[in-house]
Amino acid sequence: MPDGNVIVLLKDVVAGYQTTGRGWRSLFKHVNVVLRGVNLRVYDGERVAIIGESGSGKTTLLKVVLGLLKPVKGSVEVLGKDIYKLPWRERVNVLKQVGYVPQDPYKALNPKLRVRTILSEPLESAKAKPEEVEGRVREVAKMVQLSDKILDKYPGELSGGMMQRVLIARSIIHDPEILILDEPTSALDVSIQAQIIELINNIHKKLELAILTVTHDLGVAQYLSDRAVILYKGGVIEEGYIDDIITRPKHEYTNLLIASYKASI
């Protein structure tokens, strides 16, 4: 395991969604459990991938880490603070250190705002000085290779790859300690996948932040992570260095996942 400070620490997290049954059962609420006692550690500056098939609880895990879904049991520590025990305002301050890139760039950007506004909005809401905002927007845009021309465009005028760059720029605008990526390349063409992978790895090197990627694509995980966690039916079934997992999977399910990937690609 790598050394350094633990940025994200999940201890025996049980989480799910409140549902009601049909008919008279609708009088009673119960929790449809998705995560069943998940333990996870992400260290400072580390790249971790969470791999699993649809319905394994990957996105629920992200929601828990992002402070959007309170777990039924267990604790969630981000930067050493149990976020669900903090008052709301303090929780927001902690979560400012977490950058998030949502799954679908086509749906995640407000179509009525120009790219410049999309990037400056988080800074303005954090009450940054107007003269600092423009400088920071330009700096981040340069980091993700967005030209000044692009800053004045609307998302509808951009390609999928460009939209993903805008999303990555928005997620790092607060200079976060950890960047969370939800399926960063699944909505993109294969031809620009490599550009986005390279960009994410460059940002990791430059900003020395931790990266937590959620993906079902083992091939992409190979390039975006050092360590991987395999999720199956809401539980962690295997954890280790990505190269070891791919070459010597220990769990039967991981073996099956790798075999399916190799057979379908």
Partner: peptide
């Protein structure tokens, strides 16, 4: 296009177009 696809277990440098 073929060079841009990540292959499992072979960590070749990915090329984009």
């Amino acid at each position: 296009l073929a060079d841009a696809v990540p292959l499992l277990g072979i960590k070749r440098p990915l090329k984009s177009i």
